[in-house]
């Protein structure tokens, strides 16, 4: 099995979000970038396939040179090789077309992406990629087992979960559940040293459609102060929810 894990480089979950250049750009000042949490679950699952089933694992990210520390982290966790596609990932359709090219050229039969990037929340790259490649696709994937070409997967649905059977080649949009939280891999010293020697290929983007662009950003309106109700007076809370907020 040859696995490609798609990594999106995103601000750490604790980041304060600000915009700059007349609110047309995300302000990266002081922001720590990490492997997108949904991809981290997928990468850990890929390591399992490597250890238990002898899979080869490559990682790929579409981005400028600034994404390399995040790619190196994935190599330190245990991926065998990395590819960086040298383009700004401003549109999901564009990113998916770039990734499709890498999948075709590399003969991967399992592509592990995340349900969504926690920054732009597109939730579209894995699905578009699967469609461009005519591969099977499981989104919001919370469990993945592979036996030869046969795949058993689970996905989260509203109000529960669904079990699916399908086959390779496959693209998944993974998320929490794919592996146990406690199994998430943290790079150790040896991994970090080894990552320096591993192959990181930079490829130039192909001409592709930019289907969308973000033209401006806004922060949510500031919140008014909380109205506190005394713990012995829940009637008042009920009355506020009924008469003021009109939600019950």
């Amino acid at each position: 099995m040859k696995i490609l894990v798609c990594i999106s480089n995103v601000p750490d979950t604790t980041s304060k979000i600000n915009f700059t250049d007349g609110d047309t750009k995300f302000d990266t000042n002081g922001v720590q970038f990490v492997i997108n949490p949904n991809d981290e679950f997928g990468l850990t699952r890929a390591m399992w396939f490597k250890e238990k089933q002898g899979a080869t694992v490559h990682v790929v990210s579409v981005g400028g040179p600034t994404v390399e520390p995040t790619i190196r982290k994935a190599l330190a966790i245990g991926a065998d090789e990395a590819i960086r596609i040298n383009a700004e990932p401003t549109d999901g359709f564009f990113v998916a077309q770039q990734l499709a090219e890498v999948v075709k050229n590399g003969d991967y039969n399992l592509v592990i992406a995340g349900r969504e990037s926690i920054d732009y929340n597109g939730g579209m790259v894995p699905g578009i990629l699967a469609s461009l490649l005519d591969m099977n696709f499981v989104n919001t994937c919370i469990s993945l087992e592979i036996d030869g070409e046969n795949v058993t997967a689970q996905r989260e649905i509203d109000g529960g979960k669904e079990t699916l059977t399908t086959s390779l080649p496959l693209v998944i949009g993974g998320q929490k559940g794919l592996v146990q939280e406690s199994d998430l891999k943290i790079p150790n010293m040896r991994g970090i040293m080894m990552a320096r020697q591993k192959k990181l290929t930079v490829v130039e983007p192909i001409d592709a459609l930019n289907a969308t662009q973000d033209t401006k950003f806004e922060k949510p309106a500031a919140k008014g102060a909380v109205k506190l109700v005394d713990a012995s007076n829940v009637d008042e809370l009920i009355s506020l929810l009924h008469n003021e907020a009109k939600v019950i």
Partner: peptide, 11 residues
């Protein structure tokens, strides 16, 4: 966008 920490105007 940004997990509800912001809004984007997308064209």
């Amino acid at each position: 966008a940004f997990s509800n920490k912001g809004f984007a105007l997308t064209q």
